Simulated assay, not measured.
Amino acid sequence: MSGPQKSGVIVYSNNIKRLSDFYTGMFNMTLLRETDDFISVGDSDFNIVIHTPPIKIPEHHFNTVKIFLTVESLEDARGRVEKLGGEALAGEWSNPVFSVCNISDPDGNHIQIREFKL
């Protein structure tokens, strides 16, 4: 796999190393990148980003798995989401490769959407 995947899943964990060891050992995934805040594992078909949670994970009512998908335009996607019964959540983040923001589907599941930079 070369460069970041366009889709996959983010898994929040208080012990990212333990979870990384599980996915690499269980599914023969490869360690792709590791920082203090996240570990990326995967293969040519799928990427799992194991991330330190942005907030303290409560025992209940916190979705620790979040899919991420690529869109052509964050702005256009944020405009469409409410028409389709979802919600555009506050905030947008960027790195040198892509920009991201969060939306929720009609059931309240959070989804990270990514717009890759050319």
Rank of each mutant, 00 (worst) to 15 (best):
A88K: 11
V81N: 02
N109L: 07
I67N: 11
H61D: 06
S94N: 12
L118S: 15
T64C: 12
S20F: 07
S99M: 08
E34G: 03
N47T: 15
G25N: 15
P96H: 06
I111Y: 01
G86N: 09
P54K: 09
S73D: 09
P54N: 11
K66F: 00
I50Y: 01
R114L: 15
F98Y: 14
N28E: 12
E87L: 13
G25T: 11
I50V: 04
T24V: 14
H60A: 11
H51V: 11
I67A: 13
L32A: 07
E75I: 14
I39W: 03
P53K: 03
I16V: 13
K66R: 10
K56I: 09
E87T: 12
N63I: 00
R78V: 11
N47Q: 13
S44A: 12
F98E: 07
F38H: 09
Q5Y: 00
K83Y: 06
M1F: 09
N95S: 13
G108H: 11
V49H: 01
I67G: 10
R33I: 00
F27T: 02
V11S: 07
G79V: 00
R114Y: 10
G3D: 07
G8Y: 02
G91M: 03
S104G: 05
N63S: 15
I113C: 02
E72Y: 01
L118T: 08
F116M: 02
S13I: 04
E59C: 06
P58L: 12
D37R: 13
M26R: 09
Q5H: 15
D21C: 08
P53H: 05
K17H: 08
L19M: 15
D45N: 13
I10Y: 02
I103H: 03
S2I: 10
S73L: 10
